[in-house]
Design a protein around this nucleic acid. Structure first.
Lengths: 345, 345
DNA sequence: TAGTAAATTTTACACACGTAAAAATGGGAG
DNA sequence: CTCCCATTTTTACGTGTGTAAAATTTACTA
């Protein structure tokens, strides 16, 4: 049974026997037309194939009901989790989410911003590329429409609404834990292109210094392509282990993906990191990447609250969209990390 | 320096001193206006802040230049890789990609389809939810606009353009390899909700039978929530290993995520799977999940060609969009898997 | 320098729907 | 049964841009 296809509301209105504006009102809220009319329209809609035109719908409306989300890349379950929570929250609030991935490319990120502006999205959530982002683009976006920064923030955008993890707290938490159960940890870092990575490195330094230990940071030089975190972790530690260094230390990795590489390096050298391990080697990460429970040994880490961050970002954005913020000071929301003790440390 | 914001092309045209349609033509192709005029417009654009309205732009155009992509869920690096390749290919071809994730929910998937139809996208690429998809929705989508199925296809949609992996070939490849180097493998499957999983299971059965061995399939019952593949793999094998079963067998897992769980189960029981391993235990997967090189031991698997699949899907879709297909028979493109020998088998 | 063909710019209408204001309708009270 | 008020429906115009056809300009030739 093929229903006749109807392209415009106009045609639909003659087909059903109601005026077009009445249909318009019905689609926006079925309650806004008389019950008998609503019923008539419903019946009519069942007999034909019609979908309203998205563009025409939004063209002359004050609000488009869309939220734009910019994500730096997809091949990372952290962003993927975050995005999931954002999309769900936005959907629940009745918004259509348009996600654009910048694929680690500032030009693509800029284009995404342009797209959002031209689409008149009600607001944007942006997870920046790190210091590869074109900050001018972010600034323009921010000055044009409701804007909330998520997960990571450029040093030049401190006066903007932000939702993320309190890295000082989270990194401090695991640093202290490691100090408690073994030798003070060294820090396996990353090339300094990522704001969060830098924040964690700094938090480690502060914490370990405060505890009276000497900080040791390794892995800040670029070894592999910078987005292959696991490869980076493995490569760096392979070098050290090969020279017999750090084989009996606690190693705090800047994030779980680096830690997964670290675990790999350890196993290559016949080392088994763990809490009560004989050698004293311990490896810990940060984020609670979904695969942590399944590594060998299972990775001890600090969990970021993806769920909470996503939800908070969306609700803050909606607040700004609705102009519900009383004052002008930027709202910074930082969520605590939670220790996830497993086997590796 | 704040540039004056200009909202419409009309305003822009008076600001620059050119007629509005001339601007329209300029934006669509700067070459289509006289050089001197183009220069004048360029200069004007540098002095003001203007972005054309996305909706108005597409409203009265035959082609919207957009491609809709539906993905079942994001928390899986396989889909993430595939999506990346699709987005890049589409972008290169000059299309704007709108991605909607169905988040394992048929209602969300249906809404995404609706959105695409109302946006008049030029075509859609859909990776279905498996047998949880609302097939009526897919059918409607397919009958309304250019449509290519990717990665997995419902048994009821065999007469549709499709791009994916040749699971018979890929699974056969690794099955034969395992038979060659050790005992004939058993197959660690999944609850039968996923078309690819079912195809691989069948391919295993056919291949192993053809080789004169008796097929053994485990893990078809639902143990954990069905999208936690790793947990499923671990739980199933834990049971068997605890009973001392299959500890000296080759185990072919339906995919790498399940295999990661399997590796975990092995290590829990003090088993070390591997090529020349003492016990005879071997574990292999399917997909070449990006983390395979970093598991302990590194996972032997069959690689799917994400790159090729994504590109082929996009270029086929564009072909259909441009009506370049000579005949009416659906075009099925299956890519071969490639053996990735690492340590685990 | 005038005339003509080609290229460019304008005019005018179309796109599909939102929405305020005007007209019509329905229901209830007297 | 009639009249009036509250809803609902309709009329009419707005949204920002695409595009075919008409008008103009440009470049070139004779």
């Amino acid at each position: 049974m093929k229903k006749p296809k109807i392209k415009t509301m106009e045609e639909l209105s003659v087909a059903i026997g109601v005026s077009r504006p009445t249909l318009s009102r019905y689609f926006q809220s079925p309650d806004s037309v008389r019950g008998s009319t609503a019923k008539k329209i419903q019946l009519g809609l069942e007999r034909v194939e019609y979908v309203p035109n998205f563009f025409a719908t939004r063209l002359n409306r004050k609000s488009t009901g869309m939220i734009g989300v910019i994500i730096p890349y997809l091949n990372d379950l952290f962003f993927t989790k975050l995005l999931e929570s954002i999309e769900m929250a936005a959907m629940d609030a009745g918004y259509t989410v348009i996600t654009q991935c910048s694929h680690s490319d500032r030009a693509i990120e800029a284009r995404a911003a342009e797209t959002f502006m031209s689409m008149n999205v009600d607001g944007t959530l942006v997870v920046p590329l790190g210091n590869r982002s074109d900050l001018v683009v972010h600034q323009r976006l921010q000055s044009r429409l409701p804007f909330v920064l998520v997960d990571s923030r450029p040093a030049t955008m401190l006066e903007v609404d932000f939702v993320g993890t309190d890295h000082k707290q989270s990194t401090g938490l695991i640093t202290k834990y490691l100090c408690r159960v073994g030798k003070p940890p060294i820090f396996l870092a990353m090339p300094r292109v990522n704001f969060n990575a830098m924040e964690r490195e700094k938090a480690y330094m502060d914490c370990i210094t405060a505890l009276g230990h000497k900080p040791v940071v390794i892995g800040t030089d670029l070894v592999e392509d910078q987005w292959y975190f696991e490869a980076h972790g493995e490569a760096v530690l392979n070098d050290f282990f090969a020279r017999g260094q750090f084989t009996d230390r606690s190693i705090l990795c800047v994030n779980d993906r680096v830690a997964i590489g670290a675990l790999r390096a350890a196993s290559r050298h016949g080392l088994v990191p763990g809490r009560g391990a004989k050698g004293g080697l311990r490896i810990a990460g940060h984020d609670d990447y979904p695969l942590c429970p399944f590594t060998t040994p299972a990775l001890t880490t600090v969990a970021q609250d993806f769920e909470a961050i996503g939800k908070a970002a969306v609700s803050r954005l909606i607040e700004v969209i609705n102009n519900e913020d009383t004052d002008d000071t930027p709202r910074i929301q930082l969520f605590d990390g939670v220790l996830k003790l497993r086997e590796s440390a």
